[in-house]
Each structure stands twice: as C-alpha cells, then as structure tokens.
C-alpha cells in the first residue's frame, strides 16, 4: 500500500536558535529532539544560528466543557496554543507564521481535585510531547533558497513591549 519505513529527517539548516527561555521544558524537549536528527543542533546565541525561531505566542488555556446539573464542572478542555515564525540570518522569513494548537479533554470532579491536578500535569506533558513532534514536522518542511532576495529595508521591525 505504499508505506515504507521513515527515512532520516534531514533539515535544511544546521543550527537553530529557539527563541525561548533556556530553562523551559519545551526548550529542553526541542533540543533533545533536534539532536536525534543528526543534522541540526540548537544553539544558545541567536547570531550564531543559521535560522532563528521567533515565538509569537505560547498560551495555555483551561476551558469548561460541561457542567453537572449542580452547576459544577464535569469536563475541562486543556489547550496549548503555540505560534511561531522562522527567520534566516538575514532576517528573511523561511517559515511564515504558523499556529499549532493541541487540546486534551479531562473529566473533572471537585471531590478528587488533587488527583485531577496531577492528571492535568500528565496531560500537559503529553500535549507538550505532541507539540514538540508537530514543531519538528514544521521545521523539517522548511526549504531554504539561498538566492532569495534580502528583506526590504522598510520591513516593519519588531513591535514594542507587548500588551
């Protein structure tokens, strides 16, 4: 039926700067996954990197999905929304703004609030693993055209302090 074992996932760049806190779990997981490609490595200084990841948003939400007849929560939806772009050394966009949203539903009961909190942590880790895998797929799809024109001088610069 045309399926074959997945070949090596060579990326179009050798070094990447992740653009997030060095200490974050997500950075750790991404670094580890990048190492398994054998082609690409995360570097800690942006100026040393062939491409730079710009994290536009990394939001976590917890929304109510259903209520009991007593008005208390029966199900939550956990959501992690990650938006990012990738630029090359010259500031050219090699991957335009992409959004990855990962969700998990969790049943809830106030009588076991602590157990549910632990379960939520497990699901958050599971969502992060999912997110990392999807980010890796996006990075692997990047193609770099060395002859692309430099960005126009008038291109808008980064926005000032977020609000």
């Amino acid at each position: 039926c045309g399926f074959h074992l997945r070949g090596p996932q060579a990326m179009a760049f050798k070094t990447i700067h992740l653009g997030m806190s060095e200490y974050s779990d997500l950075a750790n997981d991404l670094r580890r996954q990048l190492r398994t490609t054998g082609t690409t490595e995360a570097v800690s200084t942006a100026s040393d990197a062939e491409v730079r990841m710009i994290v536009v948003a990394d939001n976590r939400e917890k929304n109510i999905l259903s209520l009991s007849s007593g008005g208390t929560v029966r199900e939550f939806q956990l959501k992690r929304q990650f938006r990012f772009r990738v630029l090359d050394k010259a500031g050219r966009e090699v991957m335009s703004l992409a959004e990855i949203a990962v969700t998990r539903d969790i049943t809830y009961n106030d009588n076991i609030a602590l157990a549910k909190e632990q379960e939520e942590l497990i699901l958050q880790r599971d969502m992060q693993a999912d997110l990392v895998q999807q980010i890796m797929r996006r990075l692997a799809a990047i193609r770099i055209d060395p002859n692309a024109p430099a960005p126009a001088a008038s291109a808008p610069t980064a926005a000032p302090a977020a609000r």
Binding site: R104, D105, I106, T107, N109, I112, L114, A115, K116, E117, Q118, E119, I122, L123, D126
Partner: peptide
C-alpha cells in the same frame, strides 16, 4: 490523599499506573 483513577485515554494507555497520585 491525592489519588484517583485516571481517565482512560491515549495518554493513560501508555502510563504505568492506572491511578494519578
């Protein structure tokens, strides 16, 4: 103290313990 049956889902399928906590 802090333990209950976890929801049975794809995350739980690959967990070692059927309980959280």
């Amino acid at each position: 103290f802090d333990t209950a049956r976890a929801d049975f889902n794809f995350s739980q399928l690959f967990s070692e313990n059927i309980y959280t906590g």
